[in-house]
């Protein structure tokens, strides 16, 4: 699978005669141009992708990560691989995610807070990484952990979440060809606010599944507990598949605000990747396993 694997009709941002502040307030408009039934996906600007972030380790405000993440040291960086796996150990980033294997993937990213972006990621399919590590037959899930270091991540001094940030995937989700370990975006190395030096990207799930600045991968037989699930289990589930039919208890998930546009657009089942991933969840009640 190459470049635009996701089947996203992407058009590059076009020049506009509007003053910048008006374009900000009223959007680039014409999201339904071309008479297509579905709005066109335009790549979100590099500026927005790198300044509008949720990375609570650096503060709760969307601008906080860009302001405060600079102090995090990302080289050298090691990832501990443990659990039900033939090749456990401590891996340097470049050994785990070889730069020569990096591909580009342009994915929609839908935050659980009902906003979304289109981001050209650079990374390596997680499946390729996992195959080299050789999980045992007992490995049914893989758990991930973010760095825990309150000195570098001042947000960890406040008890918003049970640090370190933790996420997990079922093994078939982790092996799915769409699932990516990203080390860059827009052809540049990831900035710290985007989860440098390596982060997960699962495009059919809400953004909070995409754990940043990973230091640990643990293969296990039972389902791992995730940070958001621990903090509010009735609001954030383990699967966290994008689903317009299952609302968050406090807000609707039917629509989303695509950054750069005015108003809302409909949210798509599995964030528009249903053709590729719906079969992973056959027979499951997605309203209960949300």
């Amino acid at each position: 699978m190459a470049g635009a694997v996701a089947g996203v009709g992407v058009s590059a941002g076009r020049a506009s005669a509007m003053p910048a502040f008006l374009e900000r307030l009223l959007g680039r408009g014409g999201s339904r141009e071309g008479g297509s039934a579905l709005p066109v996906d335009t790549q979100t600007s590099y500026e927005d992708v790198t300044t509008y972030n949720n990375f609570y380790e650096f503060g709760l405000g969307k601008g906080d990560p860009a302001k405060h993440a600079g102090r995090m040291v990302t080289r050298p960086w090691h990832v501990e691989v443990s659990g039900e796996v033939a090749h456990p150990g401590i891996y340097a980033v470049d050994d785990l995610v070889p730069p020569r294997d990096v591909v580009e993937r342009i994915y929609r990213m839908r935050c659980v807070e009902a906003w979304s972006m289109v981001i050209p990621w650079n990374g390596v399919p997680l499946g390729d990484i996992i195959r080299r590590l050789k999980p045992t037959s007992k490995a049914k899930f893989v758990a991930f952990e973010t760095l825990y270091d309150p000195e570098q991540m001042p947000g960890q001094k406040s008890p918003v979440l049970d640090w370190p940030y933790a996420e997990g995937l079922r093994m078939d989700e982790a092996m799915h060809p769409l699932t990516l370990i990203s080390t860059g975006l827009y052809g540049k190395d990831l900035l710290n606010q985007n989860g440098a030096p390596l982060r997960l990207v699962v495009p059919w799930k809400y953004g909070f599944k995409n754990i940043k600045s990973i230091v640990r991968m643990h293969f296990m037989e039972t389902r791992p507990e995730t940070a958001w699930e621990k903090s509010a289990p009735h609001e954030y589930g383990f699967y966290a598949n994008v689903n317009p039919d299952v609302d968050h208890p406090r807000w609707s998930q039917k629509r989303e605000h695509r950054i750069g546009e005015f108003g809302q657009r409909p949210t798509l089942m599995f964030n528009g990747y249903g053709e590729e991933v719906a079969s992973l969840y056959t027979g499951m009640d997605l309203a209960r396993s949300f």
């Binding site: 900000r24 300044t51 969307k62 906003w115 605000h257 950054i259």
Partner: peptide, 13 residues
């Protein structure tokens, strides 16, 4: 902030 485009990626929000 709005006139200077400083309200961020989701200005109305």
């Amino acid at each position: 902030e709005g006139l200077m485009g400083q309200l961020g990626a989701r200005p109305w929000f």
